[in-house]
Design a protein around this nucleic acid. Structure first.
Length: 271
DNA sequence: AACAGTAGCAACCGCCAACTG
DNA sequence: GCAGTTGGCGGTTGCTACTGT
């Protein structure tokens, strides 16, 4: 029994990704598409575990990633969605176009949970804490060794719901060439080169000589699932979609104190 | 200037469900 | 139906930058 590890760890790179590794990965995915993560590193010439490649792509290299600060609207939506969905970061991320589950999870852990605590709200239950009972059990960072001890008390029963799929995937092509990867051109996230990445979205392009090419030469085509389009709209309408979800949720809050209604709203988000 | 403590976040780990033969 | 494989998720770690002393 036992599962084979996802990859042999011997001789594989770990830790932060280098621009060169990013380049290789982006090039490969542009040419061959996502998927087959296990075999991808070898084919792409990367000394990385497939899982690591997938994570890097999903969280940083995808063209539709929105870098930069979380806006107050997004913050509010995260808090509301968290109160409905709990720590299901991928679901929450699915409602925030361009944001990744990892980003939202990190943001929650470092900013939002602390803020809620400081406001006297339990970040787990989203209920007001008794004023005289500072349950500021700022979960001490414990060095994990024995994972078998699962959290027990007040743990919500595990619900197995259909896994959501990302609402979009994008393919970037240059206007000047039919394939983004042609002419040795490579897309690299802004953040790789720009430090003041205030709400910047997009990629820089450079060729094999690392000569930067104007990213305005790119046009991104998002391939949306129609159903998701109806819910979230196109990429450019992300603010609208946020507001729509807000509105819907606020209406429920106003008109209904029935938890069942709210639950069904949460369920609807899962589809 | 040097050091210690803290915060932020990229990356890793282990588990699980879906898929495949 | 079963076992192996793959992809995806949430929790956690550990590095780095920042801040305070």
């Amino acid at each position: 029994m036992g599962r084979a590890p996802c990859c042999s760890k011997v001789g594989l790179h770990r830790g932060p990704w280098t621009p060169r590794e990013d380049t290789l990965l982006v090039k490969y995915i542009q040419a061959h598409g996502e998927g087959h993560w296990r075999s991808l590193p070898k084919k792409a010439g990367l000394l990385r575990c497939g899982k690591s490649c997938r994570l890097r792509w999903m969280n940083y290299l995808r063209p539709d990633i929105k870098r930069g600060n979380i806006t107050p609207d997004e913050e509010d939506l995260i808090i509301r969605l968290h109160s409905l969905l709990g720590n299901r970061w991928s679901l929450i991320a699915g409602r925030l176009p361009g944001r990744t589950d990892n980003e939202i999870k990190n943001y929650w852990n470092t900013h939002l949970s602390k803020r809620l605590l400081s406001q006297g709200t339990d970040p787990n239950t989203h209920k007001k804490l008794p004023p005289d009972n500072p349950v500021v059990v700022l979960v001490p960072k414990k060095k994990r060794k024995n994972k078998s001890t699962k959290p027990t008390e007040q743990e919500k029963p595990k619900i197995h719901l259909p896994k959501p799929s990302r609402f979009t995937s994008s393919v970037c092509t240059t206007k000047s060439s039919s394939q983004g990867g042609e002419n040795g051109q490579v897309l690299v996230p802004w953040s790789e080169y720009i430090n003041d990445d205030e709400n910047r979205t997009g990629f820089l392009c450079y060729n094999d000589n690392h000569d930067l090419i104007n990213s305005s030469d790119f046009e991104c085509q998002s391939h949306h699932d129609h159903d998701h389009d109806q819910v979230l709209g196109a990429e450019g309408d992300s603010n609208d979609s946020l507001e729509k979800i807000y509105e819907e949720y606020l209406q429920l809050l106003k008109t209904n104190e029935d938890q069942v209604q709210l639950d069904s709203f949460a369920e609807s988000l899962l589809i």
